[in-house]
Amino acid sequence: MAGARRYRTAYLFLAPAVLVMLAVVLYPFIYNVAISFSNMSLYHLRDPQFIGLAHYKTIFLETEIWGIFGKTILWTAINVVSHLTLGIGLALLLNQEVRGRAWFRALLILPWAMPQYITALTWKGMFNYEYGAVNLLLKAVHLPAVPWLSNETWAFIAPIIANVWLGFPFMMVVALGALQSIPKEMYEAAQLDGANWWYQFRRITLPMLKPVLGPAAVLGTIWTFNNLNVIWLVTNQGEPADKTHILVTYVYKAAFHYYRYGYAAAFSIVIFLILLSFVVYYMRIQKEEV
């Protein structure tokens, strides 16, 4: 009670933000949960009926969805690992005293500065079988052209390449910031102790990057897991034959191509729960370490 009075001004200042959050986050969320138990679709827009867990049952029984789930995990893992590796690698290079460092840094951040939408469409063009830049390059070095967007496997690799391109600058910027905050005495002390570059990287750099890159990787995982744009645009809505979907593009298609609102709502709840359990798991690990 005393606290409430003491912090009254603080609460007052927070109130508008809280109200807006309630309106734009909590309300739609609850609404989403509600329609996930209904048969709301184009044909039942104004008269949705309660159908219980029917959509959830469909989701778990549909074998196709387990394949998409596996693909989503693969997509997320490959992307996040590549983002981290490339990001840390380039940050290490940029952290050296090289001439024109500022210039390189600006250049490398560029993919991130471009709107995702435009980058994705550009990559789509570059993956064109006959006239795309990628195959022209392959041709120039006498490699066979790759059916990037028509073969199921390649059409999955293509958006991964595009998204790696889009995602590494963020990790690079984060890693660079973290690297620059590591005092150079730590490396000097290690050098005197006889540690070579690799040992220093493993025992000092990586552990020192962890507190910053850990949360960045979690964020990256969530973004990638839910990255609609890149797959949707590069593969032209899941082509070939809806074989390149991840969960979120599949949901998007169900909701906005087929107007299966109830089903899509239930599906997004499932995705939400997957990500929620991932974050809870991460936070638990984090707590144990401290």
Binding site: S150, E239, P240, K243, H257
Partner: peptide, 20 residues
């Protein structure tokens, strides 16, 4: 009719598979 959308999406992969 809205069903046309389902028809397109059903035709597309099979059609491409024939071409491939």
């Amino acid at each position: 009719v809205p069903e046309m959308r389902a028809i397109w999406d059903a035709m597309r992969p099979a059609y491409q598979n024939v071409i491939n």
